[in-house]
Design a protein around this nucleic acid. Sequence first.
DNA 1: GCATTACATTGCGTATACATTAAATAATGC
DNA 2: GCATTATTTAATGTATACGCAATGTAATGC
Lengths: 223, 223
Amino acid sequence: MSQQRTKSQTRTAIDGLKELIFSGELAAGSDHLETELAARLGMSRTPVREATLMLEGQGLLEVRPRKGVRILSLSVADMDEIYELLTELESLAARRAAAAGYAKADLKCLEDAIDNMETALSEEDREAWARADEDFHTELVRLGGNSRVISIVANFNDQVRRARSMTLYIRPLPEKSNEDHRALLDAISAGDQELAFKVHHEHRSNAREMLIALLQKHGLRHV
Amino acid sequence: MSQQRTKSQTRTAIDGLKELIFSGELAAGSDHLETELAARLGMSRTPVREATLMLEGQGLLEVRPRKGVRILSLSVADMDEIYELLTELESLAARRAAAAGYAKADLKCLEDAIDNMETALSEEDREAWARADEDFHTELVRLGGNSRVISIVANFNDQVRRARSMTLYIRPLPEKSNEDHRALLDAISAGDQELAFKVHHEHRSNAREMLIALLQKHGLRHV
DNA sequence: GCATTACATTGCGTATACATTAAATAATGC
DNA sequence: GCATTATTTAATGTATACGCAATGTAATGC
């Protein structure tokens, strides 16, 4: 995205730590001393410390003095909480997007994302599908136009990212999903606020239930 | 609340800065250098810096390299965004509280808050009313039981605190407010999820519209 | 052998020193 | 005079030093 000429060490630490967390190199539940992380990232403790404080604020880890920072793991109950929150906020965004009276051109990103999901589905390319699905949801929230909602949703998407990629290959192919996406797009196009809200709320609720059931079925108590 | 034996300097800085911001001593929109704040708080730059980074994460200020930290002011549009978000999240909490099947004893805090508001109203004690109103809303969200929602709502309440206290004496006395509160309490008691959601959503929407209109009427473009 | 206390270790919180670089100012050429 | 470039200033970003307090370990008493 936006490239600074010289990326600050703190920025590097934040990005580096997030990457290490998302990739699982820093496992959920594991503890790491500031010194260790600093050495790992090739910098002094100061920017690492700043980064961990910020990531703590974002709910990705917990700073536990003298025990190291703990990479947070999410219980099923946590996932349920987060999905409930995302359901509500995305549905709010859907309603607002419908209210905004967007022209067809404004909704092109949504269209594209849906097309990409369809292609990915037919090719059974789960990674591509997941990317397009995230695009769709991100764009939907953006169209909602509430900047606070946008950043909260982005934050919690980060938090569940690991869980998503863990379940990507054990979940059923989301065949029905795109019907919902198209229905939502139609509702937004038509400016039908309540329908947009309702369609997306149900879509998200279903996804939530599916995911929770999946986690329980596979005994994934923590992700 | 929870007292540390020795409060860390960073903690002191956070609390101190928040206090200075809420009280208006650090005015909305004003800029302050790290060194200045450090001197003011009687500590070195390090904990001040950590505090400002965390408060930036909480949306209370913005760190602008070489220009100092800027205390954020909220435009009317910002207030609108935040109130929209709070409306949705509190209404979600209301629905969940209704779903939880709380016993009468569990809802005592809500009852008390309503009583306190009534007393405060009859005595025209606006400060007391505001405290009780905040108690009510905080407790409602707590009863909702979603810890993410709880902390987000607390965060945004901090952000609008200054605006609230600014408008406290120019707004009309909230005579009707308590009817809504009681109706919500009844809905929660009765376990009527949709009613609880609806009642509170409307209550909040009204409060939002009143506040926005008030800000505009008084030409308060930034608070 | 167990509990308790003294001791050693070490990770963190904070202060401070220093390098970097954006901004402000002065100087130069036209 | 104006624009452009060189210089200075100063606030930040980062490294480092250091003391404290928490944790683990050894020593002591019973």
